[in-house]
Amino acid sequence: MTEQYRLATLEDAEPLLAVTVDAYETIRALNIPFPAGHATLEVIQNNIVQHECYILEKGGEIIATVTLDRAEDLQRQAISPYPFIRWFAVSPAHKSQGYGSKLLDWVEQHIILHKLDAPAVFLATATRHPWLAPMYERRGYEPFHIKTVQTPERQEEIVFMVKTLDPSRYKTPSVQTG
C-alpha cells in the first residue's frame, strides 16, 4: 500500500477526530489540558482551516497527523521565531511502526526546511508527561524554555523544545519575558 503525505481537507475532519481522540487518551488520563485531547469535530475543522494540518495516509486510512501553526501568534513569536508544530498524533493501531517519525521527518524536511526555508522548528509539551519530551529529544529536539501556565486544576509546566534543521542558519531563540 502506498503512503501519501498531504494537507488535510475538511472531508478528513471525522477520521482525523477519531485518530486524535484515540491518540490523546494518555493526555486525558493524565489530566493534561491540551486542546487536542478534548477535540470536537468543530475544533478539528477549525484546525484544518486555520493552520496547516498534515496527514500520513496509507491505503486511504489516516495513520498520523501533525499541525504546523501558521497563526500570527505573538506569544509564540516571543518564545521562538521558528515554525511551531502541534497536535501530533498517531493512530493507536499504528503506533510503534515508524509512521509518526515518517510524518515528522517529511514535515520537517519538505515543509519547514524547504518550503518555508526555516532553519529550525519548535514545539511544546507538558513536563509531567512520562514519555513525550524524551521521545522528542530522541528525534533531535532540545529543551530551551520552560513556562508555567495556570489551568483551572493546577499549574502546568510546559517545556518548549527546538530542533535545528539547518545549523548554518540557526540562531538560538532568545526568549522574551515580561
Rank of each mutant, 00 (worst) to 15 (best):
M1E: 01
Q4V: 02
E11N: 11
D12L: 10
D12S: 12
E14I: 13
E14H: 12
E14G: 05
P15H: 09
P15R: 10
P15C: 07
A18C: 02
V19L: 02
V19H: 05
V19T: 06
T20M: 11
D22G: 02
A23L: 03
Y24D: 00
Y24A: 07
E25A: 10
E25T: 08
T26I: 04
N31P: 00
I32Y: 06
A36L: 04
T40D: 04
L41P: 00
L41R: 11
E42R: 14
V43C: 10
V43S: 15
V43G: 13
V43L: 15
N46R: 14
N47Q: 11
V49N: 12
L56A: 03
L56G: 01
E57N: 06
G59K: 14
G59C: 09
G59R: 07
G60L: 04
G60F: 00
I63F: 09
A64C: 13
T65N: 15
T65A: 15
T65E: 15
V66Q: 01
R70T: 10
E72K: 15
R76D: 09
S80V: 11
P81W: 07
Y82I: 05
P83Y: 06
P83V: 09
R86H: 07
V90A: 00
S96Q: 13
Q97K: 03
Q97Y: 01
Q97T: 03
G98R: 08
S101I: 00
L103Y: 00
D105K: 11
W106C: 08
V107G: 01
V107A: 01
Q109G: 13
I111L: 10
I112P: 02
K115E: 13
K115C: 02
L116I: 00
A120W: 01
F122R: 03
F122A: 13
L123E: 01
T125F: 00
T125V: 09
T125H: 00
T127L: 08
R128P: 05
H129Q: 05
P134Q: 05
Y136Q: 08
Y136D: 02
Y136C: 04
R138K: 11
R139W: 11
G140H: 07
E142L: 03
F144I: 11
I146M: 06
T148P: 02
T148L: 08
V149I: 13
T151D: 05
T151E: 03
F160L: 12
M161L: 11
V162A: 13
T164G: 10
P167M: 12
S168L: 08
R169G: 09
Y170C: 14
K171A: 15
T172C: 14
Q176R: 14
Q176E: 13
T177D: 12
T177N: 12
G178Q: 13
